[in-house]
Design a protein around this nucleic acid. Structure first.
Lengths: 392, 392
DNA sequence: GCAATTAGTTTAGATTGTAAACTAATTACA
DNA sequence: TGTAATTAGTTTACAATCTAAACTAATTGC
């Protein structure tokens, strides 16, 4: 919401109204100038002037006329989502996922590259080469390549510096600037859970508080407050896996005892299952057959899941919580048990106003979220200053 | 940050710059027009014009000249904190605390009224009569009485409606509008912990995330994000007392087992102490003599306190946590044990960047916070539209 | 008492928004 | 077929607010 500086000048007024109109156009499939006039409160004259700028800047297209019962037909306007392409990356423990999207975050091409050498030098090289190749396969567009978003399996601070990514053994790496230097486009790094949250939040953008829980071998939350990723003072917010939920509990890899993720992570569930002789493969398993002992394990697991969720609900009073966990999604009895457990234990308004859902996001959602961040930053830049309008 | 509507007009531009200059004047003891010009980036002409408006509106005073080595002396400007008075109330279980403050939140008069009949009718009557009396004792000021803030011992929703205040047995009471109707001034109700947080946050206003923990018979958190109270989707955020920290724990009044406040509230500590034969009176006790058994009790208590704090730190990555608990403040060994415990258990950057402090707030801090809210809303109104400038 | 310096005001001009009048395009119907 | 009614979008005259630069005001040093 706050613009370049705190003070307001004419230019800021224009930028704010440009941004307002562009956002309206983006969030509605098609819209006419009169509708923009009605929904923004700006006069028809101002709307016409700003739309003319946006069309000149190739950010908006005229589609031809729409329908009314009587009178002159409106000209349908739409966002020129093909005016640029963005890249989204997810760095995993054994591979790098790349997607190229349009400015709406729609995937144009994707590719997953397996790598084993996670030195920054090699990662940078692989990304540069792969992106160049992928982009060359896309049709040329007016603004070409507008930026890269990068989902990192670790802790990223508010300046985009990767503080600690244990699996790939990075410490205090200013990856954003490195990658930006060799690609020539802006790069935005953030934690995987935060990028996932961005992709999820597209489904409920109006929420004051929404949480996306990413459950794998650990648990992390992407927290969205007033439509923006909440990162805390330094960028380390959302480390919910290490909430203590059990006194004298199991030793966690973080050194504490009784962390939530020692009980509620996929790793924890898989260990409990395999300890009781149920075999679970990591990926692409069918749902686990619900025998009585398995049901008991799921029931206990749902209880632990509930404990952390109750903390989250009490603390944030979120309108939505999305759970992103392939294992839970595959065994949907867990979410039913979880809902029962929450209903039994939590008797507050906060629970009734919180919709708990399994993620509907596609496989490469974190990369899509990353690309959306890159596209959004581009759109902000375009709103805040005009590109190259040679004439006039 | 966002003003009346989303679109920007000339008036909005003016209001934004008015507000900017007024805030600068408020946060600096004294400031001249040139200094405002330098710190806001607005031209001297604009600063002069806006300052002239503010002076005409009695919100700013000229104090006479300041010092420079050479040249014309600047005219010192200051916020006219005496231009209006605000009231802050805290409704307790057996009394109502009233303070009257200037627009800086400085207490002019305060009074505590004991009452037993907590019917809304009686409470409204008592408040009306007492405020009238207190205000009559203050010198008349230009804007006279600008508003009331009200700290409530219970859950208040985002619209200011008191959903549930168990001690005084209120349910879904639109107290703000009722009190506003009989006093003729705007009323803002919020939870006690949130009002406390406002009073505390004055000490660190630049923090992206700060938490004020109010520990009494229960535990609640006032959460400040980007300088504003964070209330969640409906207004119920901050119910940290009911985070589960113990599996199969003690039954809580909320119906759950193992809530944080069953272990870390003052009530819990006092019960443990009295169960071991240590007598503790509720108020104005001297520090408890630290015998070996007492030390053990404090140590265990600090451990439980730490469990919830670790959740808060992991989740919010706050720059500050303030603990407001008379019992802990009186027995400062607890905070030392707590710090040790946190150092031993939590090995993250989030801990090192979080300053944990005991509240330094005065006894009636929640009422002061409430009055600050009322004064702040008045200042916003004054920034956003000009009062009665008959001439011109 | 005059040059140098700093504070604050005045004035002319630019940008952007508004309101209201205008043009453009289309349907209904005589 | 042509004209009134209707709706979409543009043009024009004007107002608000900011800026830059010239100006006035007040003070110190010599």
């Amino acid at each position: 919401m706050d613009l370049l500086s705190k003070r307001f000048l004419h230019t800021h007024m224009r930028f704010a109204n440009r941004r307002l109109i562009l956002e309206k156009i983006i969030e509605s499939e098609e819209i006419s100038r009169v509708e923009l006039h009605a929904s923004t409160g700006l006069t028809k004259a101002t709307v016409s002037a700003i739309v003319a700028e946006l069309i000149e800047d190739k950010l908006v297209l005229e589609l031809g006329t729409g329908n009314t019962l009587r009178g002159r037909k409106p000209i349908r306007l739409k966002f020129a989502e093909h005016a640029g392409i963005a890249a989204g990356l997810t760095i995993e423990t054994d591979e790098i996922e790349c997607v190229i999207t349009d400015l709406y975050g729609k995937v144009l091409i994707s590719e997953t590259v397996e790598i084993s050498d996670f030195s920054t030098k090699n990662v940078l090289k692989v990304i540069r080469v792969r992106l160049k190749e992928l982009i060359s396969q896309c049709a040329p567009v007016h603004y070409s390549f507008v930026g890269i978003g990068c989902a990192i399996p670790g802790i990223v601070d508010n300046k985009g510096i990767i503080i600690h990514a244990p699996y790939i053994e990075w410490q205090k790496v200013d990856f954003s600037n490195m990658l930006s230097a060799i690609t020539g486009v802006p790069v935005f790094c953030d934690n995987v859970a935060n990028m996932l949250a961005v992709a999820e939040i597209m489904h409920h953008p109006e929420e004051k508080a929404a949480i996306c829980l990413r459950i794998r071998s650990g648990i992390r939350a992407g927290i969205i407050i007033n439509g923006e990723i909440f990162t805390g003072g330094d960028g380390f917010a959302g480390e919910v896996g290490h909430m203590p939920v059990e006194a004298n509990g199991v030793l966690c890899r973080c050194g504490q005892y009784g962390c939530w993720e020692t009980r509620a992570s996929e790793l924890a569930l898989m260990k409990t299952l395999s300890d009781s002789g149920v075999t679970v493969h990591k990926k692409n398993d069918p749902p686990i057959a619900v025998t009585e002992p398995v049901r008991k394990i799921f029931y206990d697991y749902a209880g632990w899941l509930a404990s952390g969720l109750i903390s989250l609900i009490n603390m944030f009073n979120p309108g939505h919580i999305t759970i992103n966990s392939p294992l839970i999604s595959r065994n949907d009895i867990i979410i039913r048990l979880l809902n029962e457990e929450l209903q039994n234990r939590l008797h507050t308004q906060s629970l009734s106003s919180c919709r708990l859902e399994l993620s509907k996001a596609p496989k490469n959602a974190s990369s899509i979220g990353a690309a959306i961040i890159a596209a959004d930053k581009f759109i902000s830049r375009m709103s805040l200053s005009r590109h190259n309008h040679k004439d006039a």
